[in-house]
């Protein structure tokens, strides 16, 4: 899933309004994001699905509940672990890293 997953036009919601763009860094790689959208959404748009890796079994995890309850999307954001990226908005220049276990 390399191309953008954005829904530019929609039969019910209409055309997407242009948003201000910001840049976040996923493991050092720049990713373009819409200002104010959750981190996990910006990553999903860029085709990045693995956000967390379990400690013992080394299993990948991604967006699951999408509303800050399950913790499956927690990442290290600007050095802080356990940030629920499905409900934390991006900020320009933010550095996000996959979290391994308790980090």
């Amino acid at each position: 899933m390399s191309q953008s997953m954005r829904i530019t036009d929609h039969p019910i919601l209409g055309a997407d309004e242009p948003k201000k763009k910001v840049t976040i860094y996923y493991e050092g790689t720049p990713i373009e994001a819409n200002e104010g959208e959750p981190i996990a959404i910006a990553l999903a748009n860029a085709g990045i699905r693995t956000l967390y890796v379990t400690e013992k079994m080394n299993k990948p995890r991604g967006i699951f509940c999408g509303q800050g309850r399950c913790g499956s999307c927690r990442m290290i954001v600007d050095g802080v672990p356990d940030v629920k990226t499905c409900s934390t908005p991006v900020k320009d220049g933010m550095r996000v890293q996959v979290q391994h276990g308790l980090a």
Binding site: M1, M5, R6, A44, P60, R61, G66
Partner: peptide, 23 residues
Amino acid sequence: TLPGVMLAGAAQTMTNIHRVLPG
């Protein structure tokens, strides 16, 4: 538990609010 398996609410939030297709 694989990424790409998600609850309906998450898929709806991604698609209808943030306008990014989950897949």
